[in-house]
Amino acid sequence: MRDNGTVLLAGATGYLGGFITKELIVRSIPAELIVRNVEKGADLASENVKVIQAEVTRAETLKGLFENVSVVISIVGITRQKDGLSYMDVDYQANINLLEEAKKAGIKKFIYVSVINGPLHRNLKMLEAKEAFVDALKHSGLEYTVIRPNGFFSDMRDFLKMAEKGRVYLFGNGSQKINPVHGKDLAVVCVDAIEGGETEIAVGGPDILTHNEIGQMALLACGKPINIIHLPHWVRKLTLWAVRTFTSPRTYGPIEFFLTFMADDAIAPRYGGQRLSLFFQKEMDVIRKERMRELKHDFRSIF
């Protein structure tokens, strides 16, 4: 760890943030976690990890928090807008607030998690804001690393949701390829970047899979027969046009992102050892246990 400084992590209570926090703890790296809700982040605290309340969308709440901090890791961003905030409010401006405070405090390095192929899809609302911040980071004068995962295992839950209903819908012939990465593996890449010298890192999981193969895995995990429906791409394009025309960016942002990336390969350098098939099985085990608890509760309430 450079200069025995502290890592400041913004976005700690999200999917990836929890894994990064655990990786920092394993390596005994002192860290401060910025959270909006201290109670929500209380479970992340430890001997070397301090939880701090602040709102990254409000620059004034960040003042004075960067003392003794050497590296900032930001995974701040939204996939579905809430609290009336836009992508530009969070993915861009909130990160700009962090970057400006980092510059004032003389932070040595800023690590930011974006999306694979972001520069190629700047027209998407979700990526427009992210890439605007990447531009600002590159011109900040700070040492930086932009990490570009090509999809989380958690994103693949959409396949499970379809599979639970007995069928999976795909666009085209389903031959598009992707190697999504587990948050645990991605966290290792993020923490390694603290001492690394790369400015951009594209990262995916160990298995390159077609959409057909992912659909099959999801159906098998749900105990369903293989039933994959292939939709022509004109349906996808028509849906894109409709949501962009008749809904607001808050509504169509995540839909636009999903439909665009479902049409192309998204292959990144392979990393880690977590397997999607096992992730699906564990997810379904959790769902089944939860349903069993609900059934037992309903049964007891009857009698």
Results as ranks from 00 to 15, higher is better:
I255W: 04
A242Q: 13
I228C: 07
F257V: 03
L220E: 10
L142F: 09
F257P: 03
M162N: 03
A187E: 11
R250F: 09
R157V: 08
V191S: 10
D158A: 11
L240C: 04
G141T: 03
I228S: 05
N173K: 10
D192G: 11
E131K: 00
G196Q: 14
E131H: 09
A136I: 02
R236Q: 13
G253F: 05
L220H: 13
V134R: 06
A163M: 05
E128S: 14
K224R: 15
R167L: 12
P206Y: 12
R167G: 02
H211I: 11
A136S: 15
D155C: 02
P232A: 11
E131V: 08
R250L: 05
P254L: 01
D207R: 15
I208C: 06
L219E: 09
L209V: 00
F133D: 12
M126Q: 13
I229M: 14
V188W: 00
S154Y: 05
R148F: 01
T251G: 02
M217A: 06
K161E: 13
E143Y: 01
P206V: 15
R157Y: 00
P225D: 09
P149N: 08
E131D: 10
I226L: 15
P225H: 03
E195K: 12
N212V: 03
F159D: 08
W234N: 07
H233M: 13
P254N: 09
N212H: 04
L137F: 06
D207M: 11
H211G: 03
K161P: 00
G253W: 08
E164R: 13
L137N: 15
L170E: 08
V203H: 05
G253C: 11
A202P: 00
G172I: 12
N227W: 02
R148A: 01
A193M: 11
E198P: 01
T247H: 05
A136H: 08
E128P: 05
A202G: 01
K165N: 07
Y252N: 00
D155W: 02
G166Y: 04
K130A: 02
A202I: 00
F258K: 05
T239F: 10
A242R: 09
D158E: 14
F152P: 01
V235E: 02
Y169M: 04
P232T: 00
D158V: 12
G172S: 10
D155K: 07
H182Q: 04
G204N: 03
Q216R: 13
L137T: 10
I229E: 12
C222H: 07
C190R: 00
T245H: 04
G223Y: 10
G166R: 00
H182T: 00
